[in-house]
Design a protein around this nucleic acid. Structure first.
Lengths: 162, 162
DNA sequence: CTACACGGTTCCATAACGCAACCGGAATCT
DNA sequence: AGATTCCGGTTGCGTTATGGAACCGTGTAG
């Protein structure tokens, strides 16, 4: 046995989760987006075990989400910064954050705020839209297999799923 | 020792991941969005271990993402359907899927497609926008601690992070 | 030359996960 | 009714993942 890998799956969601689906990954990426660059930053801020952090950082570098760059300040050896590929995970984090803001509120309110840099305003809700830019209600969104197939066992319920 | 819980963290991202951050959770939710309702559906489609599936479904019900409803067809006992809370995770899945479509493409192309139901068109890219609806480039988005604080150890690099 | 900071690595204990076998209730078959 | 199958789930066991703390090598500071 071993933990199942999603990398053989054809689904894009699964393939993304293969990169960022493990327990600490997205929080590490979040910290990187907030300016964390060094091992110590991540470790102290997250409270993650050091060996686990080592492994996660390695996986993220391996997966092209983070890259190691020589450090600028005198002390550090190398630092971790997001690649373009990694930075483009921002919508995922924004979506996660906004869901949490609405559905999993901490008693002291949100700790992190996503903003528009120039104005400092909070980022508007990230929500699917149609071509004209109008927000789409959830029941107007569908998800289906690319080949049009539905697993045979689902067929019976399929009609009332619509 | 035990796996660290994120539920004490104040960050909304962490609090969301506490609900959906474990290895299979988001794929289960994805399947639920595609119409899977029964234990068997999830199990066969995902290939997840049955005891793990039991645990995940229980956690998702516990967390108010899924709910158990009496089954309509003769056979089933109870079925799992998304709550409103669960359905609102759609942006997260869309963001994950679109990232994968771009950055983690399978040789045979994407397996799942997110569409606008009426027209059947693919869903436009989910991307942060400003108040006027214009897409924001990533460098115009900021993320910061709500109290304005930056962990002391980050301070030295802070300026070139901007 | 000593002391310390930093980024890891190593070792161990425990929790999480995969696999397969087993169980009990309900529907189906005969 | 009795046997069979379907189904959702549990149990036992082995492997992997994660947490905790100690240890190490390199570079800095004094």
């Amino acid at each position: 046995m071993k933990t199942t890998s999603f990398s053989d799956m054809q689904c894009s969601i699964a393939r993304t989760l293969e990169h960022v689906g493990s327990w600490w990954s997205l929080l590490i990426i979040r910290d990187a987006m907030m300016g964390a660059r060094r091992f110590k930053h991540f470790q102290e801020n997250l409270g993650i075990a050091r060996n686990t952090l080592t492994k996660r950082l390695g996986e993220l570098v391996e997966g092209g989400i983070l890259q190691k760059v020589p450090a600028s300040d005198g002390y550090a050896h190398e630092e971790y910064v997001l690649t373009e590929r990694g930075a483009e995970l921002a919508p995922v984090l924004i979506a996660l954050g906004q869901w949490g803001d609405k559905w999993a509120v901490h008693e002291n309110g949100p700790a992190t705020v996503m903003t528009i840099r120039e104005s400092g305003e909070a980022l508007p809700r990230l929500w699917p839209r149609d071509k004209d830019g109008a927000e789409l209600p959830l029941d107007k969104i569908g998800m289906r297999w690319a080949n049009g197939a539905t697993p045979s066992t689902w067929t019976q319920e399929k009609e009332d799923t619509e």
